[in-house]
Amino acid sequence: MQCHTGARNVQKIMVCLKRVVDYNVRIRLKPDNSGVVTDGVKMSINPFDEIALEEALRLRERGVAAEVLVVGIGPADCQQQLRTGLAMGADRAILVEHDDEVLPLTAARVFLRLAEREQPGLVLLGKQAIDDDCNQTGQMLAALWGRPQATFASKLEIEAGVAVVTREVDAGLEVISVDLPAVVTTDLRLNEPRYVKLPDIMKAKKKPLETLTLAGLGVAPAGGLRTVAWEAPQARQKGAMVTDVDALVATLRDKGFFN
């Protein structure tokens, strides 16, 4: 599908970035089982959100969009991830400061306020965050906003106020077409995010980063789900090693297979 350079389809793209424990960190429970260890642990942009930002930047570079805004919710430390987003190429950032747990419904309500204020033509975010694995926020935002959702996107084409989105679903691939503005949540294979270069990190320091609060936006934290306990998963026991195919087949038959 061709893009009409010059005739921009989307004035502004809003990308939601969540700060999470880095993908490569080995997750450990705190000794008192009150949560997972995050002190002194490397934090990063949720990898799915990074893919969302990359897609937004490519749309801007192709002339489909004019501006890329990154937004986040969380403690002041989230500025680091938003700065990384600015270094990747976003134009400006908004942090909605909140020190307590942010449930997906709370996040969706905050993003709704930001969407009403910023009027983006497209909201992009990861399909799930790799910490709570909820896979909810994009769908909830779309519902509250009364706009279309296209989840688990592996291809995104925009033309004349419409997004055509290829979605990764259990049965294969599904293509839907949605009117803009819309919420699109990104899957792994949409793109490969760029690396940040040192000069861009320097430049990012000068880009605008606005700080708001939940209360300032008129959002109260959503009631509802309360986490009452944490525990380690039941580990599977390491089994037996066999030395050749005959022994493997004997074991399988012994377990009741292929008899």
């Binding site: 790799i130 309360r226 009452v228």
Partner: peptide, 14 residues
Amino acid sequence: PVYAGNAIVTVEVP
């Protein structure tokens, strides 16, 4: 499950 199954949480809905 959370964290790719590295931890299990118990949640309550009011």
